[in-house]
Amino acid sequence: MSATGPRGEFHAGVLASLAPTAGVVPFALLLGALAAGKGLTPVEVAAMSALVFAGSAQFAAVDAWTDPAPWLSLALLVLVVNLRHVFMSASILRRMERFPAAARLLALPLLADEIWAFSEARAARRPLTPAYFAGLAVPFYLTWIGSSTAGCLAGAWIGDPRAFGFDFAFVAIFVCLIRGFRRQPGFAAVLAASGGAAVATHLLFPGPAAIIAGTLAGILAAALTHREDPA
């Protein structure tokens, strides 16, 4: 057990969550405003943020949203965008030896990108405890729900997000997220393959097929350009 006990661990987690929690507020507001533009109500946005709790997947889903909601396509889209979480959860589970089985089942659904990244960072320095994880995840989770709901309330009042270019915020957010991976091996090949395949597919069959085709082309490019022990 850690020297400070569960209370100290919880406080350390809350302290670590301050920066990502503050940073996520503008995104959550934007997500809520965009969702309002697609006709979602504040209650629906709150429920989506509480139950789905996955930033890029929610942005992608709201972007692809039509009325009535194509629930199967949206679920497939969320599945594809979140596939990386399979490996993030497998990785963090190696650090959750101190978690009782029930705590693991409660913690894993809260494994948004930021929660995962900060948990891994903590685990690299000292053992990860359930109290630290709770301190990290709970403020972030509640802020995500509250801010996206507030954004929806404000968005319903603003009107059509396209008139202000708000829908283009997706492009800006995703460009910045992609740029964060630029040192990854094969980055340029993945970018070119995914973008090329997505655009070509979109021109032939508009709709979610472009996302699947681009993703498959991108990961195929990564596999084909991979070299053992790059020197």
Binding site: R84, I178, Q184, V190, V199, A210, A213, G214, T215, A222
Partner: peptide, 22 residues
């Protein structure tokens, strides 16, 4: 190996496919 490289590339591949047509 190649499988790990493919999974590591998934976020960039998905995000690029999402915005390139837009």
């Amino acid at each position: 190996g190649r499988l790990a490289a493919a999974f590591a590339a998934m976020p960039v591949a998905v995000l690029t496919a999402l915005i390139a047509p837009a």
